[in-house]
Nucleic acid binder design. Structure first.
Length: 426
RNA sequence: GUGGCCAUCGUUCAAUGGUUAGGACCGCGGUUUGUGGAGCCGCAGAUGAGGGUUCAAUUCCCUCUGGCCACCCCA
């Protein structure tokens, strides 16, 4: 052991997990690209102030989970590793004048994010999100499009039983009024609330709906529902989203207690959940509308919606259900030989096979042929080419156990490729 | 960030306040010398780190590191 370990919450992803990750990410890209979303790659770090402004300076994500980079000189701007992607996307939208493109601007990315949280299963300090953003359209239609896209993605990877929990968190017009009503409701039991919940009653009553504490949970059941205190505009938006989703075939679970952690959400808010799962692993992702964010970041008033789905959690869910895709299979053809001088030729032949679309590798050792065959067999290779001392090649069919007489290179290579193609498909 | 449980070869298990910490799987090699996943034989490989108690610590205590669970929060 070297004495070094990966830092807390940061991990190595190896096979077979690595294949499952790649597979989940590929599905994410293609689901969004097929729907007309444009790829965008963003930097992993941004001006710290961008996150502070977007997410809210008092939020947990900013106050305790943000990785702030050491400042290297007086004039450099303080940077932070991204804890989420929406802020960066909005920054890019403004920086590149995307408001002069057809609206809404639809963007996708798969991003590594960093949050200094206490790690647990399904919760890491570096994690990957599939993120979709549609900026510049205030209509309910785009909400429906985005929500449906997320469900379609999750279903496409095999998570057919996911639930969409939906709520509306209002807007600056109606939220203050609702908070008052809500606070009044909980004030009745204020003295029985846990200390944490009492603080929430003061600072962010919405969070009380989300509490795990017995008293709060019990009292939350009879709490006034936000959907009944929405302003006319928000109420109509909510109605249209629900109706549209139903017609689009997305079944929705009404979730009056759903509140999202980031301050910038308005109106539509939702989460993708796995029924039966408790706690952390249950929430695969979530999203919402953020009509005030662009303006908050210094742009013109511009609406937006988006979601983020945790790839790490998708992979975990896949594994728990045995839906993990088959890992990459080893090369179909192995090129063996024992003379040290034939190594170059073995590599050239393997390369030639690959160029013709057949996976192949050379055995670059000088071990006995028996050992080389054994390792090829264990790797589930289909065929072996043996470079004979005189430079001629023998082709051995591992399934059949037969070996042809040594022949000329071109012939043997094409026969091997042929064999790999016909048997590889089975 | 708070509280709790945990930590032995790459993996999975075992053992002990006292000689060389044991097995299985995996890997590598041998099986009479260039042809197959078996069998047999062999090799390599661990007490996470640092302190303390003790004649003696992998074992008991402390700190750190890392994992897991709950909370917090979120993906």
């Amino acid at each position: 052991m070297s004495g070094f370990q990966s830092p807390r919450g940061l991990r190595d992803i190896r096979e077979p997990d690595a294949s499952a990750f790649a597979w989940a990410e590929e599905h994410a890209w293609s689901a969004a690209l097929a729907a007309g979303y444009a790829r965008i790659q963003l930097p992993v770090a941004e001006d710290s102030a961008l996150f502070e402004r977007a997410i809210g300076g008092t939020s947990d994500v900013v106050t305790k989970e943000l990785y702030r980079l050491a400042v290297r000189s007086e004039e450099s701007t303080p940077l932070a590793l991204r804890p989420e992607v929406t802020a960066g996307v909005v920054r890019a939208y403004l920086q590149h004048g995307m408001r002069s493109e057809p609206q809404p601007v639809r963007l996708v990315t798969v991003a590594e994010l960093f949050r200094h949280d206490r790690p647990q299963k399904g919760r890491y300090r570096q994690f990957t999100q599939f993120d979709i953003e549609a900026i510049g359209d205030a209509g309910s239609g785009i909400d429906i499009e985005v929500i449906e896209l997320g469900t379609a993605y999750l279903r496409s990877v095999g998570l057919r039983d996911i639930e969409v929990h939906l709520n509306s968190v209002g807007c600056p017009t109606c939220r203050p009024g609702y908070l008052v009503v809500l606070a009044k409701h909980f004030a009745a039991v204020a003295d029985r609330l846990s200390p944490v919940d009492q603080a929430r009653l003061e600072e962010n009553p919405l969070r009380l709906l989300d509490s795990k504490d017995e008293v709060a949970v019990a009292h939350a059941k009879g709490a006034p529902r936000f959907v009944e205190h929405l302003c006319a505009d928000c109420a109509e938006h909510d109605r249209a989203v629900r109706e549209g989703l139903s017609i689009a075939g997305v079944t929705v679970v009404d979730a009056p207690h759903l509140v999202r952690g980031l301050d910038y959400y308005t109106k539509t808010a939702w989460e993708y959940l796995l029924p039966g799962e408790q706690g952390q692993q249950g929430a695969l992702g979530g999203g919402g509308r953020y009509d005030g964010l662009v303006e908050l970041l210094g742009g013109p008033a511009t609406p937006g919606v988006g979601f983020a789905i945790g790839i790490d959690r998708v992979v975990l869910a896949l594994q728990e259900r045995g839906l993990t895709p088959a890992p990459q299979r080893p090369p179909a053809v192995v090129v063996c030989g024992i003379e040290p001088g034939s190594v170059g030729m073995r590599i050239a032949i393997a390369s030639e096979l690959r160029a013709s679309g057949v996976s192949a590798r050379a055995d670059v050792s000088t071990r006995k042929i028996g050992k080389q065959l054994e390792s090829a067999v264990r790797d589930t290779a289909i065929a072996v080419i043996i470079v004979e001392p005189d430079g001629s090649l023998s082709l051995r069919d591992l399934a059949a156990g037969s070996q042809a007489e040594p022949g000329a290179r071109a012939m043997v290579v094409s026969a091997a490729a042929q064999l790999a193609r016909t048997q590889g498909g089975q």
